[in-house]
Each structure stands twice: as structure tokens, then as C-alpha cells.
Amino acid sequence: MNPRRKKRLTIVITLLIGFSAISGLVLYALSQNIDLFYKPSEIHFGKVETGIKPEAGQRLRIGGIVVPGSVKRDPTSLKVSFDLVDMATPLVFNDTDPTVTVTYSGILPDLFREEQGIVANGTLQPNGSVLASEVLAKHDENYMPQEISDQSITKEKYQY
């Protein structure tokens, strides 16, 4: 490479590195705000990195897995309440895991079911539950036909 090109390449690369560093720092500073939601454990104990704990009355999003057997539907209205626990792979539910109860009145997304990832948008109540105005389903990146899914569930059951 001739010296002029070398100089141009150095300038361009320096600028690029500088810009990446700046945006990296900005993103790092913003990173707690980029998170879409709080996990149930973070509502109990605060965010891991910053220790920020949400206060009662605060608008927030909470994301977690619907605890099996916790879904309670009101037979006369669309009111529903369920418990959320932190997402973890593989899925295990211990009684000691911190959970947060979510109450919601409205139509749930098609994917809502037990053991499903859910993101709920609402306000934190003084009793530690979340009154949701919107409930969204979060699915995982695994796709498979019905038959294989049935097999893998039975396989898991046999393992225990």
C-alpha cells in the first residue's frame, strides 16, 4: 500500500474505533434502561448490577414464566391472575423461588399458558403484585412439529 492509502486507512479505522468506543460507552450507560422488563427476583431484591428496586405505584414491565397451577380465572369476567417466576433454562420450579403475582383484566394472547414466558406492562401495587394493563407472550427460539414436542415431553418425564 502506498503511504497515502495507508494514511487514509489509519484515519478511517481510528474514526471507526473511536465511534464504536463512544457508542459502546453510551450503550453501557443506558443498558439498564434498554432492558424491556424486570424479572420477578429483581422486583423483590432490585436489579443485579445497580440494585435499583422498583417502588409501589411505579409503572413497569415484568417478564417471567407463568408458574404452573397459579392461573386463576374469574368465572364471571375476563379477570385473571397468575404468578411469574424468573426465566431459566431448563425450566425448574422451586417453591422458594421469588414470584410476583400479576392481575389482569382483558384478552390474553394466543400463546398464554402455564410455563410460558410472559411480559406484562402495569403498575406495581403496595402489596407487591402487578396490576397489568397489557400482557404479551414471549416465546422461545425453538420450533418443532407437534409430534416431536410430544415425544420430547414424554422423554423428559421418563428421565425423572
Partner: peptide, 24 residues
């Protein structure tokens, strides 16, 4: 991966096996 998002993780660009059955 860096933040918690509503969007799920990568299915096909994962190293190793794609997270879907082969017929898909």
C-alpha cells in the same frame, strides 16, 4: 442476549445445531 427483550433469541445462526427440527 445483552438485554432482556420480548424478541426471542436466534434460531438458525446459533453455533452448532439450529433450534428447530430438520424438516422445518
Amino acid at each position: 442476549e445483552w438485554w432482556n427483550t420480548l424478541h426471542q433469541g436466534a434460531t438458525v445462526s446459533k453455533l452448532g445445531k439450529p433450534a428447530m427440527s430438520l424438516e422445518m
